[in-house]
Write a protein that binds this DNA or RNA. Structure first.
Length: 488
RNA sequence: GGCGGCGUAGCCAAGGGGUAAGGCGACGGUCUGCAAAACCGUUAUUCACCGGUUCAAAUCCGGUCGCCGCCUCCA
């Protein structure tokens, strides 16, 4: 099966063919470390984490690079506000990034370069751009001349004329074209700066990605990703810099993820509705967050709301419940039957669907990483497996094992079902029980009391206790093995 | 103004020339003392609207309406 990806620059889905057979070089714009990560950062990170995992699953040897922008106006401002150094601000938020993204279960990229550690590479590239006439010096600043690159605008589909016409850019008389952007900024007092052939200064924002991607992945990348908002100007400028310097194609496939809205509004500082990863993780298990983020196609906008998160949470718990039941059966050491013969028609149908599961999953993922579509087989398979659990036969363990393996293998690519089901369910129970004004002990005593009532067929008393617990959101489940409780 | 995208059941959401995945909810059923969970069944003759192309359109083309993003730092 062949992977197809939507390429922003051609605006269509294309067959994915890396430059070198069997190898993929992927660069994703990381974060500027001046504040905590929000759900939007999480989406980008999770989306490309899934893409990274899937490419490896497909057998590619993937070199994945995700950068940290650790020198920037925003960091400088933040440091000024807090009366500390830019290094401290950057270091602090890099650590926060690792804490948050680690919690979300992101796999580590191959390289995580920091801008400040690649100043010489950037200076080298700027030199080449000056030599080739793509850049010019004004005082201690170096600007990229967009007019020197005839293809400028090819990614974001705009022409220089159009942009000039609608320009809302501040006019800097020293620039040849208002859209020219800084490659190097002359040092100002109190700002971090480095020596360069043009005097002390610091790099512009866009040059770091061109320099670092080239260092770790070569002149042509297979995949370059980031949020949709980076298409212009950031990625457009990267193309101008990289192709201007190397005269080689910069990127084969441009991938851009959509935004996260909060209750149908754009997330923004002015609206004050920035939702940080930390805040979300207080209320939801990381896998709930992941499942939520992949429940829509990565290019579409996704709307965050508590209601939707609850739906996702219940879905995840349901899956884990099924897995827990399966483990219970298999751990009981039931006789292993691997023979296919003798399956009932019903079992045979389930067997076929288990076998088809991985194909359906892969087919969906091959279609531009369509995780939303790839989730459907999970729901269908879990229903099949639950049916097996209800009507066991000699073949059940064999089918359950096959089903669970398929489930977990695909889950691994999405980064879900990575916990022990029992541990997960107990953890969720505890998390949700925290807000209940009853102790575990009190709940269990009430259940014991209800059991006595039930034995005496005192249904009124039994139901009274159930009602009382229900008023706290506690749901009782009577099973042949006793009564269990969970939080709604 | 320019560029891009979206409008699919009560809600969320795939699909994007061959006759509507999946989830939530609702309703009916199995199970249960009653429930819950799980399972079974029902829930879009139709994909914003109007034209056109085609044997065939939710899917392609043109137009209309509505919503959103980017064009300035932004995932």
């Amino acid at each position: 099966m062949g992977l197809k990806v939507y390429n922003t620059i051609t605006q269509r889905k294309e067959e994915f063919i890396p430059l070198r057979k069997g190898r993929v070089g992927m660069y994703v714009c990381g974060v500027t470390v001046y504040d905590l990560c929000h759900i939007g950062h999480a989406r980008s990170a999770v989306v490309f984490d899934v893409i990274y995992r899937y490419l490896k699953y497909k057998g590619y040897e993937v070199t994945y690079v995700r950068n940290f922008t650790d020198v920037d106006d925003k960091i400088i401002n933040r440091a000024l506000q807090e009366g500390t150094s830019t290094d401290e601000i950057a270091e602090k938020y890099i650590q926060e990034f690792y804490t948050d993204m680690g919690a979300l279960g992101l796999q580590e990229p191959t390289f995580e370069p920091r801008a400040t550690e690649h100043i010489p590479e950037m200076i080298e590239m700027i030199k080449r751009l000056l030599e080739k006439g793509h850049a010019y010096l004004v005082g201690g600043d170096v600007y990229y001349s967009v007019e020197s690159f005839p293809e400028y605008g090819k990614l974001s589909k705009r022409s220089l004329d159009e942009m000039k016409a609608g320009a809302r850019v501040e006019v800097d008389e020293r620039k040849r074209n208002p859209l020219d952007f800084a490659l190097w900024k002359a040092a100002k007092p109190e700002e971090p700066s480095w020596e360069s052939p043009w005097g002390r200064g610091r790099p512009g924002w866009h040059i770091e990605c061109s320099a670092m991607s080239q260092k770790y992945l070569g002149e042509t990348l297979d995949i370059h990703g980031g949020g949709k908002d980076l298409i212009f100007p950031h990625h457009e400028n990267e193309i101008a810099q990289s192709e201007g310097a190397t005269e080689k194609p910069f990127v084969r496939y441009w991938l851009h993820n959509g935004f996260v809205n909060i209750d149908r509004e754009k997330m923004s500082k002015s609206l004050g509705n920035i939702l940080t990863v930390k805040e979300i993780l207080k209320d939801y298990h990381p896998e709930v967050v992941r499942l939520f983020l992949i429940s829509r196609h990565y290019r579409s906008p996704i709307d965050f709301s508590r209601q939707e998160m609850e739906v996702v949470r219940r879905n995840l718990e349901r899956f884990y419940q099924t897995l827990a039941e399966i483990n219970k059966i298999l751990d009981e050491g039931v006789e292993k039957i691997d023979a296919r013969g003798g399956l009932s028609p019903e079992e045979m149908a389930i067997y076929r669907r288990v076998e088809e599961f991985s194909h359906r999953f892969e087919e969906a993922m091959d279609d531009d990483f369509n995780t939303a579509r790839a989730l459907a087989p999970f729901f269908e398979l879990s229903r099949d497996l639950n049916r097996l659990l209800q009507n066991p036969s000699a073949h059940t363990p064999f089918l359950l094992r096959r089903g669970r393996d398929a489930f977990l293998e695909a889950g691994k690519i999405l980064g879900i079902f990575q916990e022990d089901p029992h541990v997960f369910l107990e953890g969720e129970k505890r998390r949700r029980a925290k807000d209940i004004p009853l102790t575990q002990k009190e709940i269990e005593n009430l259940i014991k009391e209800r059991d006595k009532a039930r034995q005496q067929k005192d249904w009124a008393r039994a139901d009274e206790i159930r009602e009382r617990l229900a008023s706290h959101g506690i749901v009782l489940e009577d099973t042949p093995k006793g009564t269990t409780w969970r939080v709604r």
